[in-house]
């Protein structure tokens, strides 16, 4: 009898604990989601009015003249990020492959450590580094120096996700290829890496999404521009810089356009993140 009562009591205690756990975690999850939705909703409310065909297709108008858009900034961000991806993707993916396949020794450990440290370096410091290396010696701001800063920011993300992606390929797949009499090279390049491809692409897209919204590394590299500029060796308009410059300006029209630019930027990053999810999910379909 006493045993049964003790059991019933401990069951009640457990249920109570469980309920507290469920409620508190659900509340926190709700708070996190609410913060995201509030930001999104506010940007949409403030920015939606600015979005129009001219806004997306025109370059900025001089102060005081209504209209004008951020087309040059969208193009500039696209070019800068694309060049950064071309720089970072091959190095990052190959480093990740190396760490996953051969990464046991002291050399690999130090690469992994440096990559983790790099992931924690403030982006403005990386911008300064790009300035010292690619701007100061030429006495000329350029989009490509911004791309370089972006590439440095992307590297740790790509390295880490590629290593994880390769490691998550089951050892039975690798052994299956080796057991067929395939050399290690063919096993790695034709079987293991393709099996990890979706996750590697996901990592690339996430690294792109991560730098697309970066502002600090561009301040003294790509610098920004009010004009159409497609040559990466020259200063180039950048969406985050444009938002920054408009937001700190004293003109109400520019404030509205800053919100519009922010909305465009958020949509681009959201689309990139969505693509990353699709890429990961399409792995097993077909």
């Amino acid at each position: 009898m006493a045993v049964a009562m003790a059991q019933a009591r401990s069951l009640r205690v457990r249920h109570a604990r469980s309920a507290v756990g469920v409620v508190s975690t659900a509340l926190c999850a709700g708070a996190a989601a609410a913060a995201l939705l509030l930001i999104l909703g506010y940007v949409v409310r403030e920015g939606a009015a600015s979005i129009s065909i001219p806004f997306l297709t025109q370059v900025p108008h001089p102060v005081g003249i209504p209209g004008g858009g951020v087309a040059n900034a969208i193009a500039g961000t696209g070019i800068t990020v694309a060049i950064a991806t071309l720089m970072a993707a091959p190095i990052g993916v190959l480093t990740g492959v190396y760490l996953a396949m051969y990464g046991r020794g002291a050399f690999a450990s130090s690469i992994r450590f440096l990559s983790d440290v790099l992931a924690g370096v403030p982006s403005i410091a990386i911008g300064l580094f790009a300035y010292v290396v690619l701007v100061a010696p030429f006495k000329h701001f350029s989009a490509v120096s911004g791309s370089f800063a972006f590439a440095v920011l992307m590297l740790p993300v790509i390295i880490r996700t590629t290593e994880e992606a390769i490691r998550s390929v089951p050892v039975t797949i690798r052994e299956g290829a080796l057991a067929l009499g395939l050399p290690v090279y063919a096993t790695t390049v034709r079987v293991v890496i393709p099996a990890a491809r979706a996750a590697i692409v996901t990592g690339l897209l996430l690294s792109i999404a991560r730098v697309t919204g970066e502002t600090a590394p561009l301040l003294f590299t790509a610098f920004g521009s009010q004009f159409w500029e497609l040559n990466p060796r020259n200063p180039m308009a950048q969406l985050p810089l444009q938002i920054f410059n408009y937001a700190i300006s004293p003109y109400p029209l520019w404030h509205e356009q800053a919100w519009g630019g922010a909305l465009v930027l958020i949509v681009v990053v959201l689309v990139l993140n969505a693509l990353a999810r699709v890429a990961l999910r399409s792995r097993t379909s077909r």
């Binding site: 039975t172 009499g181 079987v191």
Partner: peptide
């Protein structure tokens, strides 16, 4: 020259 079949089927996924 010596083929092998594993415990769990392991077709190459891609």
């Amino acid at each position: 020259r010596i083929g092998m079949v594993f415990q769990r089927p392991n077709p190459f996924p891609t």
